[in-house]
Amino acid sequence: MPGITREEVAHLARLARLELRDEELDHFAGQLDDIIGAVARVSEVADQDVPPTSHPLPLTNVMRADEVRPSLTPEQALSGAPAQEQQRFKVPQILGED
């Protein structure tokens, strides 16, 4: 298994929205490399013809009726908001699509 590079860790941090300092990147790169080296053993079974288990219980079709339940009040909904305005969550400027 290939090891994980510092650049890859930086990429992961970006994907995961973690603003890491350089020394943190170095620190994590070493640790993640160790961990991945250890857990990579699972790929021993990669070519085995075994169905994957995503759910521990074989349940299917758990659904609810389309009936309205009480919502939170807007005060409750916004009670933890770091900032609010006009009964809406106030967030910094959003980059991205225009």
Partner: peptide, 10 residues
């Protein structure tokens, strides 16, 4: 290799 295999181990 990773998540998929881990689920097979499961």
């Amino acid at each position: 290799a990773y998540y998929g295999s881990a689920q097979k181990v499961r």
